[in-house]
Write a protein that binds this DNA or RNA. Structure first.
Length: 933
RNA sequence: GCGGGUGUGGUGAAAUUGGUAGACACGCUAGACUUAGGAUCUAGUGCUUCGCGGCAUGGGGGUUCGAGUCCCUCCACCCGCACCA
């Protein structure tokens, strides 16, 4: 009987669909296991063989856990808002909802063919109003919350209001922008004078108007509206978050990005910076991703120091990680955007400063990064006073100081910081040495073990000691203190796009309000998916009656970014159909954290950080019972394509085979991998492939073949190296494809796709079919049981350590051995069918059925290995001399080391290799014998 | 520059706690069979040597009876961050 995979797979898929075999529900009597794939964006291109790699791995794991008796949650859905569908809509006018729906249908068709065990009754789509109803709900929760540093968690905004009513702003330790009051529109607060510094009494609070209260509260909310410097991408017509920019250009499309001050919704992720670092310890992720997150959050310890300005009431606040080097400070540098620049610049230097600021602002992020080496700056004419020496320090501006980090100002210590050193050299500023016995004539000294000198009370101390000494002194003097700074910025949450979640926000009198909890704003229809004439986002095109809800003066016109919906989707799967809550607490308590999360590493600073943030927030507010979403994560590597090349002789239509290409001047051109078998080109098909190759002539090799060159690179249509899962399922079956993708190598590693190798795996399944065909009631032989139990042990251990690839080899070895042994025993073969089932579920079901088993193979108990079948009577000892294996000697397994040594020494072959007496003989029982000469 | 990772046959890889390096496949070579297939079966296949043997896990050094595995050092490639004070 042939292995008729098409018939087998179609039949079992139909049965499982009819039986709803993958539907799960909470069962308190069973242990749960949650296996999740990263949320896919359903792109128009469909899946190529690289995409399902992770899905297959998670599917294998979900099935394995089910065999072990776990109640396995394994859902799938779509992150279906996003730019590509909208760009397509702009070009064609087709509503992105239609594009998205079609793309999803295509995805689903491809996924179904591969036989995944998803519980599709839990499918979610972020663009579905019944999903984003709850995304909006979470936004409202964030809006109505603040972060209390005293309790170190988010709290309802009411607890803040209560504090204000009680004691005003005093004793409030909130996560809030420093100097937030400077952002307050003081015209709205006529009662505050010029010296308002963010402090108000309970009486002030209660006397505030509704609008005034709202304006104040806005600065405390976990999602807030504020003027902030954003990355504006003119080509995409929207702002981008830091993680959406790579190398200074937009990640999508590679367009230039510039800095712009815009009124935007932001998320106060910075409040969670420390917890996001600390809790990395509690998750089982690979070190590289954890490290990327740590770097991204960028914690640094140092000190905040105020430098009084000479002849000005203001002082400059700086952040430094090396307060110990303060005696080496010879100048100050502000970022060109620093708010004091305008105020402190003297008339004499005004033109120069204005020119520098203008030029710095005109630079795109990319220009700025490209000219890192070039030292530029300008002197403001102002001086600051050194807090310890009283020296006057000139205040400069330079774009090596970033407005967005720390306070946008530094105390420059040329002796201790290379950038300050380079700046000082360029502008001929003195570089006094503050390190004992260190030569700083060539470069600055950043070594923390260097001992300080010329530093008054810090003399003789190394950095560690001096830092704390200096911090205490600063604190005594009331001009600074130790503090921790984070690189992580609050995340901009508005996008000026159409195809995203609308905000549940309306404006009255310029003040934003959120809708009632039960109210859902759906996306209104618009005439075009473009900004309005005066630059408002596309939603501003919608007429008032196009909105399902309209309140106040107007609705919010921005939409939410792509990461909004994907930050909490893993929770919705637990209770996907709930129309009362985002997810019932009883369900999230049962399913809990994702036990195994599989997906690419490219989301390290986006999705994986944002979803941790929202999880912590929902935890703080008591909506869920855990504060990390993904307990274990594995990042699959990319599958690369293997492109084929033909070599056309310049200015001809003649193609020369790889071996002879160096005899000619040639041009390498892509050949579709479908026209190439084993690097040999089907010349006839090639000539028909494209009009321009019609009548092509070929110079062949000595065997009469045309051999193509090849290269490993990303799979893409333009390289003609794409293989889709569809065509492979068609040719070999889903089971073969599943096994083969796993067989390719370790999941995490990037690896090239070998179009040829799949034959070997297909062959293995055919051999398996043949082996099971002859099953009968025969009693299993000792060898049969040994092979089977060895395999049970190996596969179980491999799966427990997430080694998907070696399992396939183990199955192959088992089938090879049992075939060799001419095994026909149903008893021996049955466990093998279960072992096979996670990888090749259709074939396993067929075999299981044919063996005469009643229930579904899906729920068959995972076989337990029995040590007794693995005991050997005889061990083949490798005998080595000085560590080199020379021969093997079979000896009874129960021999003790002394007897083994005696047997080896007595053996005739030992004499061959041994000259004289051995120095030592090492016997590791059951393993090896080593004779030292 | 900083951080993380990876280097094993012609190819993908295996070797889990230091114990027979290259399992399992692809490819290749030779042969068998035939219903000429992208079929199946048999044998071989790290390099080198006629053979005994010698050499081999990026290079060099070390620890050990024994190192792909542990330590030091250098090199190459990949990923992330990057004027972060």
């Amino acid at each position: 009987m042939e292995y008729n995979y098409q018939e087998i797979e179609a039949r079992w898929q139909k049965k499982w669909r009819e039986d709803q075999a993958y539907k799960v529900s909470e069962d308190p009597n069973k242990k749960k296991y949650y296996v999740l794939d990263m949320f896919p964006y359903p792109s128009g291109a469909g899946l190529h063989v690289g995409h399902p790699l992770g899905y297959i791995a998670s599917d294998v794991y979900a099935r394995y856990k089910r065999h072990l008796g776990f109640n396995v949650l394994h859902p799938m859905g779509y992150d279906s808002f996003g730019l590509p569908a909208e760009q397509y809509a702009i070009q064609t006018g087709q509503h992105p909802a239609i594009t998205t729906k079609n793309n999803i249908a295509r995805y689903r068709e491809q996924l179904d063919k591969m036989g995944f065990c998803y519980d599709w009754s839990r499918e979610v789509r972020t663009s579905d109003p019944e999903y984003y109803r709850w995304t909006q709900w979470i936004f409202k929760q964030l809006f109505n919350a603040w972060y209390n540093h005293d309790t170190n968690k988010a709290e309802p905004i009411d607890s803040l209001i209560a504090k204000f009513e009680d004691n005003g702003s005093y004793n409030v330790n909130a996560a809030i922008d420093e100097n937030w009051w400077k952002e307050l529109d003081l015209e709205a607060f006529p009662q505050f004078g010029e010296h308002f510094a963010g402090e108000f009494t309970a009486t002030d609070w209660t006397s505030f108007s509704e609008k005034q209260q709202q304006l104040v509260l806005m600065h405390f909310r976990l999602t807030f509206l504020a003027d902030s410097w954003v990355n504006w991408c003119p080509a995409l017509g929207t702002v981008l978050a830091n993680d959406e920019i790579k190398d200074g250009v937009s990640e999508r499309g590679g367009h230039p990005v510039e800095q712009k001050l815009m009124r935007q919704w932001s998320m106060r992720i910075s409040a969670y910076a420390q917890r996001l670092i600390d809790d990395l310890e509690t998750v089982d992720w690979n070190d590289s991703i954890k490290e990327i997150q740590r770097n991204w959050i960028g914690r640094s310890e140092g000190a905040q120091v105020f430098f009084q300005l000479a002849d000005h009431p203001h002082s400059i606040e700086v952040f430094t990680t090396r307060p110990d080097t303060v005696f080496g400070a010879t100048f100050m540098v502000l970022a060109p955007e620093h708010e004091l620049v305008e105020t402190i610049t003297t008339e004499e230097y005004r033109d120069e400063i204005n020119a520098y600021v203008k030029q710095a602002k005109a630079k795109t992020e990319r220009d700025r990064q490209a000219n890192v080496k070039q030292v530029t700056g300008a002197f403001t004419g102002a001086y600051a006073v050194h807090p310890f020496t009283g020296d006057k320090l000139p205040v400069w501006i330079a774009d090596y100081v970033l407005a967005g980090y720390g306070t946008g100002a530094v105390m420059a210590v040329p002796a201790g910081d290379q950038r300050d050193y380079d700046f000082a050299k360029t502008f001929r500023i003195p570089i006094p040495n503050i390190f004992e016995g260190v030569d700083i004539s060539e470069e600055a000294c950043a070594d923390k073990s260097a001992v300080l000198c010329n530093s008054d009370f810090l003399d003789g101390m190394p950095a560690k000691k001096a830092i704390s000494a200096c911090c205490s002194r600063l604190e005594e003097m009331g001009i600074g203190k130790g503090r921790v700074n984070y690189r992580l910025r609050d995340a901009v949450f508005s996008r000026q796009r159409y195809w995203g979640e609308p905000f549940p926000v309306y404006y009255r009198d310029g003040v934003p309000y959120v809708l009632e909890d039960h109210e859902l704003v759906t996306l209104p229809d618009v005439d075009k998916y473009l900004p309005t004439e005066d630059g408002e986002p596309p939603l501003a095109r919608a007429t008032q009656d196009a909105w399902n809800i309209w309140k106040g003066d107007r609705m919010e016109y921005n939409t939410m970014p792509g990461w909004a919906g994907s930050s909490w989707y893993f929770l919705r799967y637990m209770d996907a159909l709930n129309d009362k809550e985002f997810c019932a607490r009883s369900k999230s308590d049962y399913w809990g954290q994702v036990d195994l999360y599989i997906g690419g590493a490219e989301h390290a600073t986006g999705h994986l950080l944002y979803s941790r943030f929202w999880t912590k927030f929902l935890y703080d507010m008591g909506h869920i019972g855990f504060s990390e979403p993904f307990a274990k994560m594995i990042n699959q590597g990319m599958i690369l394509g293997r492109s084929s090349f033909v070599y056309r002789i310049k200015d001809t239509n003649t193609f020369v085979t790889l071996e002879k290409k160096d005899d000619h001047e040639t041009q390498a051109l892509y050949a579709d991998i479908a026209l190439v078998d084993n690097d040999i080109l089907n010349t006839e098909a090639f000539a028909k492939w494209r009009e321009e190759y019609k009548g092509a002539e070929f110079i062949l090799n000595d065997q009469g073949n045309y051999v193509c060159g090849h290269e490993v690179e990303k799979m893409s249509k333009s390289k003609f190296n794409v293989q889709t899962p569809d065509e492979l399922v068609e040719k070999f079956g889903a089971d073969t494809l599943r096994c083969y993708e796993m067989f390719l190598g370790p999941l995490e590693q990037a690896k090239p796709w070998d179009t040829k190798g799949i034959n070997g795996v297909h062959n293995f399944l055919r051999k398996t079919t043949r082996l099971f065909e002859k099953a009968d009631d025969a009693t299993p032989s000792k060898d049969n049981l040994k092979s089977v139990h060895k395999t049970i042990k190996k596969i179980t251990e491999d799966l427990e350590r997430y080694s998907w690839n070696t399992v396939v080899s183990a199955l192959m070895i088992a089938v090879n051995e049992l075939t060799e042994q001419k095994c026909t025993s149903r008893e021996a073969l049955s466990p093998l069918a279960v072992l096979l089932s996670p990888y090749a579920p259709h074939l396993a079901a067929e075999l299981w059925n044919n063996l005469g088993h009643q229930g579904s193979v899906l729920d068959a108990a995972w076989p337990q290995f029995d040590e007794k079948h693995l005991v050997e009577d005889e061990i083949e000892y490798p005998v080595s001399f000085n560590g080199k294996m020379r021969f093997k000697l079979p000896l009874p397994a129960d021999m003790n080391p002394k007897e083994v040594e005696a047997a080896v020494m007595a053996h005739e072959r030992t004499a061959e290799f041994l000259q004289g007496e051995p120095k030592k003989v090492i016997v590791v029982p059951g393993r090896i014998v080593n004779i030292v000469m």
